[in-house]
């Protein structure tokens, strides 16, 4: 069975981040033979004084496959209770990944969480309306993390755009690539330019700076930029030219 697994509000200023905790949790689940995880997508949620996030209010969601959903869910709940940071408000959402399901109301909730302050009551209402196939639970503190956890899982189910956790490093002694080589080595399914236009040609690119991939239109997406006439995967950070929030 395929799932989306999302956790939120598991950290404090001195702990590991929620993305790292999710990866650790999924790593342990894999060792126990409970589930296999896919890549993790980061979704930016609303930045507002009334929302008790630590530093950035982002939510992390990974895809997973399990043969025993019940045991896997119990494992995640226990893991969060034992490993979330002191003073955090952890929430867990496990959502069935099935293209025959109608996620539209959930996606609406996820999109609202990116531009509005939402309440736990609204999260429970959206979860209840979705019905079977959705687990939502609180694991300490105020439990307010269920809002971001549900939003992250919903946005992922809706194939909404987010950044894939982690970065891709250039390979030593190989600066020159084609986009088709790059796609096959790093699992990229689609390329776009900085304005979001699809790139279908097999381009020559120079890959010398770490880059990050996007999850966009449901595909692992690389962004190619033109830097003074040189095509390259967009460097992970472009100093002084952009900001994230």
């Amino acid at each position: 069975m395929k799932l989306f697994v999302c956790i939120d509000d598991t950290d404090n200023y001195d702990s590991i981040g929620t993305g790292e905790l999710l990866e650790n949790m999924m790593g342990e689940a894999a060792i126990k033979g409970l589930a296999k995880a896919g890549f993790t997508v980061r979704y930016q949620l609303f930045i507002h004084d009334d929302i008790p996030y630590t530093s950035h209010n982002s939510s992390m969601c990974c895809a997973a496959e399990t043969n025993d959903r019940e045991t896997f869910t119990e494992f995640c709940q226990k893991y969060l209770e034992e490993n979330s940071a002191e003073g955090s408000d952890p929430g867990l959402c496990i959502l069935t990944d099935d293209s025959s399901l109608d996620y539209s109301a959930l996606i609406e909730f996820g999109k609202r969480a990116q531009c509005k302050v939402l309440t736990k009551e609204e999260a429970y209402k959206a979860a209840k309306e979705f019905g079977n196939g959705l687990h939502l639970s609180e694991h300490g503190g105020t439990g307010g993390g269920i809002i971001g956890a549900l939003a992250g899982a919903a946005l992922r189910a809706g194939k909404e755009e987010g950044r894939i956790k982690g970065k891709i490093q250039p390979l030593p002694n190989k600066p020159d690539w084609t986009t088709s080589e790059f796609a096959s080595v790093f699992g990229v399914q689609r390329f776009i330019d900085e304005d979001g236009n699809e790139i279908t040609d097999n381009l020559s690119i120079r890959f010398v700076h770490p880059t990050k991939l996007l999850y966009s239109k449901g595909l692992i997406t690389g962004v190619i930029i033109n830097e003074n006439g040189q095509l390259m995967p967009k460097p992970k950070i472009k100093k002084n030219k952009e900001k994230k929030q």
Binding site: Y13, G19, S55, H56, G166, K239
Partner: peptide
Amino acid sequence: DCEDELVCDDAISCYNCRYRRW
């Protein structure tokens, strides 16, 4: 801060510090 939350390539910057709250 953790790698996914770094926003500029200055090794040391408040923008990359785990104690900044956007």
